[in-house]
Simulated assay, not measured.
Amino acid sequence: MYRIGELWVDGKLGIGEEHVASNVARELVTSVSRKGRRRGRQARVLICTPSGEEHSLSCHVLQSFLQSRGFDVSNISPSAPAETVLYHIEKEKPDIVMISITLGENVPAGQRLISSIRSASDVPVLVGGQQVSGGQKFKGATACSEPLERVPGLVRGLLRPN
């Protein structure tokens, strides 16, 4: 998908081709998720992207992976306004909120989303995505650039005591 994005940026692929590739990848992730194993309930996870962030394939991969490890996951990506995220936090009472940010232009919206969550809730917030790999800091959240296999342990480490 990185290569497809590069080809699109270079004008060698159109947006339609990029969307086809993303949709195929999303369907593959969904089919794998349906076959995933479950090991008992680990925690409730809310996955989202900030307003304006339309890249959600990583959220679907994360959802599939966490569900296969027994997490109860709600994925409201892409492009969730803060009010929507806060509504789902209130309604679903997740143990943790995970925010994915792919494009640098969406970092300010991500920071505003974290601030809104912090104003309304003490739920732990984990931020990941392409913009975190560069060492981006997010006040009020834990930044994660760990490999996917380490995410369940990181999530368990951030959970509030019952």
Rank of each mutant, 00 (worst) to 15 (best):
S22Y: 01
S22M: 07
S22G: 07
S22L: 08
S22F: 01
N23I: 13
N23W: 06
N23M: 12
N23Y: 03
N23P: 09
N23E: 00
V24P: 09
A25Y: 04
A25P: 05
R26Q: 08
R26G: 08
R26L: 10
R26K: 15
E27Y: 10
E27L: 12
E27T: 14
E27N: 15
E27D: 14
L28A: 10
V29K: 08
V29L: 11
V29S: 04
V29Y: 01
T30V: 08
T30M: 12
S31I: 14
S31E: 13
S31K: 14
S31T: 15
S31F: 12
V32Q: 07
S33N: 12
S33P: 04
R34N: 05
R34E: 04
R34W: 09
K35T: 10
K35P: 02
K35W: 08
G36L: 09
G36W: 06
G36Y: 08
R37V: 08
R37C: 02
R37S: 05
R39H: 13
R39E: 11
R39A: 09
G40S: 01
G40I: 10
R41T: 12
R41A: 12
Q42P: 04
Q42I: 05
Q42Y: 11
Q42E: 08
A43M: 10
A43H: 03
A43I: 11
R44L: 06
R44K: 15
R44M: 05
R44A: 06
R44P: 00
R44Q: 06
R44G: 05
R44W: 03
V45K: 06
V45D: 02
V45P: 00
L46G: 06
L46M: 07
L46Y: 00
L46T: 10
L46R: 14
I47H: 01
I47E: 00
I47A: 04
I47M: 00
C48T: 15
C48I: 15
C48H: 05
T49F: 00
T49P: 02
T49S: 00
P50F: 03
P50A: 01
P50H: 04
S51D: 12
S51P: 09
S51W: 12
S51V: 15
G52M: 03
G52P: 03
G52Y: 07
E53T: 04
E54I: 15
E54G: 10
E54Q: 15
H55W: 06
H55Q: 07
H55R: 12
H55N: 03
H55A: 10
H55M: 04
S56R: 06
S58D: 13
S58R: 15
C59V: 15
C59L: 09
C59Q: 06
C59W: 08
H60A: 05
V61T: 14
V61M: 02
V61N: 03
V61F: 09
L62E: 02
L62K: 11
L62Y: 09
L62M: 15
Q63S: 05
Q63R: 13
Q63N: 08
S64L: 04
S64M: 01
S64I: 12
S64V: 08
